[in-house]
């Protein structure tokens, strides 16, 4: 879903950049509360894993692919504030080193694929957590739904920017169904991958899944390392 340069006009790109900077500044401040001695190295791992997973495009319909965005996954594993920072790190590296996503479009891409997916994914995950019984299966199921919904919402965020300052004049009545339709399908892939990864981490180290802390009946605690 990486937006290249030239899809959006300059004022819109600048405005998106300002939203991204403000959002990330808040995330960086709040991430501190999530990052204790143990969570810090996990943040690097989550960024690296999301980068790797984003290289794995899977086919959705004929001639079209999708890939994990990873915002919901990152938020569930390391917490929403840290998770948004992790995905932003991925987008920054992709934009600067790999020419994946434009430089002037970096703000739009951070808003769509980091801030929006984390916000939607994490709120939905927590909402479902309140409704479902406390069990590992609930964590996995909530992860699937949260991740699956985050993708089409992120694609709508792009359409919102396009509506404000697209450089072309394609009617929204054409853009919305086309963008939304394919991203609903990609969202199913996002949900499956997210549920698989969250489920795997839950199996080996449930205490490392931030979003499971209030959902699991009794998380086995690792003795704290006092340094």
């Amino acid at each position: 879903m990486h937006v290249p340069d030239g899809f959006l006009d300059a004022p819109t790109s600048v405005a998106a950049g300002a939203i991204a900077v403000a959002g990330l500044a808040l995330c960086l401040r709040r991430a501190r509360a999530e990052l204790d001695e143990r969570a810090a190295p996990l943040a690097g791992l989550v960024a690296a894993f999301v980068f790797a997973a984003q290289m794995l495009n899977f086919p959705v319909v004929a001639g079209t692919s999708g890939h994990l965005l990873g915002g919901a996954l990152a938020a569930i594993v390391v917490g929403p504030w840290t998770g948004a920072v992790c995905v932003a790190v991925v987008l920054l590296v992709q934009s600067l080193l790999f020419a994946d996503g434009g430089l002037t479009a970096l703000g739009v891409n951070i808003v769509d694929m980091s801030l929006v997916t984390v916000l939607v994914g994490y709120l939905l995950f927590r909402g479902l957590a309140l409704l479902l019984p406390r069990s590992p299966a609930s964590v996995v199921g909530a992860s699937f739904v949260a991740a699956a919904v985050s993708v089409p919402v992120a694609s709508l965020a792009f359409v919102g920017f396009y509506a404000v300052g697209g450089t072309t004049d394609v009617p929204l009545g054409t853009v919305v169904p086309a963008v939304l339709g394919v991203h609903v399908l990609i969202g199913i892939g996002e949900g499956l991958i997210t549920a698989l990864v969250v489920g795997s981490v839950l199996t080996v180290r449930p205490d490392l899944v931030h979003g499971a802390h209030s959902l699991l009946p009794a998380v086995r605690l690792e003795p704290a390392a006092v340094t």
Partner: peptide, 17 residues
Amino acid sequence: GVIGTFAVGTGLALALR
């Protein structure tokens, strides 16, 4: 890319923790 994102992510997290 994996090494780069791991380095930047870990460095940032260690600075913030």
